[in-house]
Design a protein around this nucleic acid. Structure first.
Lengths: 369, 369
DNA sequence: CGAAATAACGTGTACGTTCACGATTTCTTA
DNA sequence: TAAGAAATCGTGAACGTACACGTTATTTCG
């Protein structure tokens, strides 16, 4: 275990060989080496082969600092996301912003654009994005079918499109980053099945079944419930269309049923109307509840145990992964996984404090994960 | 919502201001600006103040690519981690590696060093790290008390030390990245309390209480159990010292108790001996079990429902956050949060597939989280 | 008061790479 | 075979910063 042995270990304390070293070794110019290494035209096959071999032999590693300095690439990416639901999309934007701010060596310019809500003015706004000729675009597809042609035009104009929070499969989007919705539903079902022992029924209240996201959640919920909870039956899904009134009324109707459901899975972040109805009917604490995402009004209900768990869709991380994926694609040429499914966080009473800093007043650190 | 309004949004579409811009704005030379910005001698206090103010006003951000090119500074960071437990630390190393590979504009060189296991040769190996004069060092402290002086020497030699997986508080370490151990224990207790309805007792099997990590888990478990589960009593903690034989024997002894414990929380990743004992005694499925981390042998037990949940400590993410924190500190001067507590992932049967790609054969993508 | 010493500031080069441009060679074809 | 076209290659200027060195302004002291 003397010094020479230690030297031979993994530390590469040799002087890094540059492009000029391999040029000198072959008595050719650095320009030719550059062309050969990057598959640029204007170099004969033989010299290209020689260069590649010598580069391998000398263990050439490009100097990323010099590269990113020289080609001072300016990446322009558009971020087109709805304003509602703010607790989710604000955090998503923060994730993008924070990650972008800490990318050294390349300056990327973010163009944040907002529209009121999913399906409300998104198409028009995205339409205008085509002429901006962004290098990349981050968006949330509302109706996958309707955005297909738009994505196609963007892609053929050289804009890489990344879907976030929901996916638009069968389109030309480069990749998608979202929480695994089916797993979310499955988790909800499994938790309810483990906690509820009596025979009975459980209900689901969803936002808009038109979006792929909510349909997947329901699918996962139903599938897992059927396999792990033979004692629980599933009531027909209630669709709130993200309208508070509708959700409130539907909940009242649900609670009027006899026998009452033993558990409820609310798969949209707009859960407050449902919870309000539950509270007014004094049903909090008597029905097991699983919600979606995290916002201040939910906190006391989790702390008191009235909500069994909430499934956090990690908007900050989604934004972070989305912009990282996009940047990696734009700088290197690596095509990413078509769809990156994040695992939702299961927030219980005991790990709730770990997530509270992410929903407090903005502009604090908003640390990772 | 016209064009001017859109322009005024958060996008910083201005050309990034360099050192020469602030020189031009003040009609001085870039040399003076450089001296002023870096507290170098040879510049009058007044001009220094002017430069600083203008730098602030123009929102100057140094170009790290140009800097690290000029200084030809390779950031050298040592990664000193144990080989055991491989499922955890291999993934941790991968997280560091993958993240380091995607840092643009700065050349950082990783020096991976391994020692058999925590507390087995770590001090000696870390001792040798002092003379390497790393810019940064990532390590896992075994016994916090014993590494204090070492960390102090490293820090005073200009090496920034980051603790990962466990912390060494009250030392000169720059920061720590770990899963919130108390929360892990709390989650385990809460899940057991929700699932077990009968009156009875639960047991904990830990690795080495000497490490801060395991002690914290136990503290969180006991604390939460006391508040949410009045029907469950806690048996004295069993310490396995990370030795398979010891863990196996202790489990047999535990199962010989009457009445038998209704639930077991295994807070170390070395859970196989315990599970083997449980299986041999035909107790799998009759005792609620919560384990720690994820590795291939655990998968079928989770799929069959014999393990209620496993608390995944996200080694990949820990490595990623650790190296990100370190690099951010070394490039900018921002001192990070002293300790970054990640939320553990609760892996159930229904979300298990989301985590399987992270424990399969190496060298695949090993995507985020 | 003038020269030397010191402080304050300007100038130029280099870091390794990319790329436009010009120079040189090789290949066609009449 | 000569000249034009095409392929191949060399040259030099940038990218933003750090730093050695040279230059000018200010002070000190015999």
């Amino acid at each position: 275990m003397n010094a020479s042995v230690k030297r031979s270990m993994k530390n590469k304390n040799v002087e890094p060989t540059g492009i000029k070293d391999i040029a000198a070794a072959l008595n050719i110019s650095i320009g030719t080496v550059d062309r050969a290494l990057h598959d640029r035209p204007g170099v004969s096959p033989k010299t290209r082969a020689k260069v590649m071999k010598m580069a391998e032999k000398l263990n050439y590693r490009p100097n990323v600092a010099a590269r990113s300095l020289k080609l001072n690439r300016r990446l322009r990416v558009g971020v087109y996301l709805p304003r509602q639901i703010a607790s989710f999309f604000d955090s998503l934007r923060e994730g993008i912003q924070a990650t972008a701010a800490s990318t050294h060596g390349l300056n990327l310019e973010l163009d944040f654009q907002m529209y009121p809500r999913l399906g409300d003015g998104d198409l028009e706004m995205l339409e205008s994005s085509v002429e901006h000729h962004y290098d990349g675009l981050i968006m949330t597809p509302g109706d996958p079918a309707r955005v297909a042609s738009l994505v196609h035009r963007l892609t053929s104009h050289g804009t890489a499109v990344i879907c976030v929070a929901s996916d638009a499969p069968r389109t030309d989007r480069l990749a998608a980053v979202c929480v695994d919705a089916a797993a979310s539903g499955g988790i909800a079902a499994e938790l309810l099945a483990r906690v509820i022992r009596e025979k009975g029924s459980v209900a689901t209240i969803t936002g808009n079944l038109g979006t792929l996201d909510h349909a997947e959640k329901l699918r996962g919920f139903a599938g897992t419930l059927a396999t792990v909870a033979p004692h629980l039956s599933l009531l027909p899904a209630i669709e709130s269309h993200e309208r508070p009134k509708e959700a409130y009324q539907a909940t009242l109707a649900l609670l009027a049923r006899r026998p009452r459901p033993l558990g409820i899975y609310i798969s949209t972040a707009n859960s407050m109307p449902v919870l309000r109805a539950l509270e007014e009917q004094k049903m909090l604490g008597h029905i097991e509840i699983i919600t979606t995402d995290l916002f201040p009004e939910l906190v006391p209900l989790i702390e008191s145990g009235n909500i069994l768990a909430t499934l956090y869709q990690r908007p900050f991380t989604q934004g972070k992964v989305a912009i990282e994926t996009l940047v990696r694609y734009l700088t290197e040429k690596t095509t990413p996984e078509a769809v990156n499914r994040l695992a939702p966080h299961i927030i219980l009473r005991s790990n709730l404090p770990l997530f509270l800093n992410r929903i407090s007043a903005n502009e604090n650190e908003a640390d990772d994960q």
